[in-house]
Design a binder for these strands. Structure first.
Length: 260
DNA sequence: ATGGTTGATCCTCAA
């Protein structure tokens, strides 16, 4: 099964590029971030025409996540547990049945958190703590689970073009990386890092200041696998060429294969 | 070289 994550930065702006990528890449499951749409306005038909089931968790203007799957999506839940007052649409869960059993999919869009420090950064750290709690509960199931999305976390120095310049950024500062490290240390496998232990692995290039042509990128889109899913890992790829498409998102698709 | 782009919405905010 081929699983992908892509922050599309607006479904309306990517309504040509997304179906084109789906046709070329043929993923079985895709989680999307920053759909920037309410559920009722999400253009389902062009995706359903390609054979995908569509589940969205949207909000007006900002954020919003979705899962597309060629196989039926079951047990769909929306929203990250732990704070009933949180109105930001950043988490969706579902299960799919593969040929070799059940797979749980979590699609996530962690808060950016800038400027840091400040209330937005406090919200990011609180959200990460809530995700850590949800991940603990999921891991206890001892089943194949994949948590894919835009984590807004640069895990290590080799994941950013200029570590010193990013030292105080919410995506890289020490507290952020510590929180991410606590999550991974529960027992999750970073699929891209496991398959590509060295070399360049950026997933995001800012629209500004020629970041893409100058290759001033960062790696913030991740696929974390439970031990039972990591045992099934095949390949893991960053689809960098998509950044050169006409009217691109600032993120590119990241995908892996699981033997399930 | 403290630069400058995109998306959604309603002109400013978020990234």
């Amino acid at each position: 099964m081929k699983l992908a994550t892509w922050n599309i930065n607006g479904i309306k702006a990517r309504i040509d590029a997304l179906p084109e990528w789906l046709r070329q890449a043929q993923p079985d499951v895709v989680v999307l971030q920053e759909i920037k749409s309410v559920d009722d306005a999400f253009p389902r038909a062009p995706l359903e025409d390609l054979g995908y089931n569509v589940e969205t968790h949207g909000q007006k203007s900002f954020n919003g996540v979705a899962i597309l799957s060629k196989r039926p999506l079951e047990s769909v839940t929306r929203g990250l547990p732990g704070d009933a007052s949180d109105e930001q649409a950043r988490w969706i869960e579902a299960t799919v049945t593969g040929e070799a059993g059940l797979l749980t999919i979590c699609g996530l869009y962690q808060p950016n958190g800038n400027p840091a420090p400040g209330p937005k950064y406090d919200y990011k750290l609180a959200w990460m703590a809530r995700m850590e709690a949800r991940a603990t509960a999921l891991l206890a199931l001892e089943e194949p689970i994949a948590m894919l999305g835009d984590y807004n976390v640069i895990p290590q120095p080799e994941d950013v073009h200029d570590p010193a310049a990013w030292a105080e950024d919410a995506l890289y500062r020490t507290e952020t990386r510590q929180a991410y490290r606590r999550l991974v240390a529960q027992g999750w496998t970073d699929a891209i890092r496991a398959v590509n232990p060295v070399g360049e692995r950026f997933t995001f290039w800012d629209y500004q200041a020629g970041a893409w042509p100058r290759n001033k990128g960062i790696r913030i889109d991740h696929i974390l696998l439970s031990p039972q899913a990591a045992d099934l890992l095949g390949t893991a790829v960053i689809d960098k060429a998509v950044r050169d498409w006409e009217k691109p998102s600032d993120h590119v698709p990241v995908w892996c294969t699981l033997d399930i």
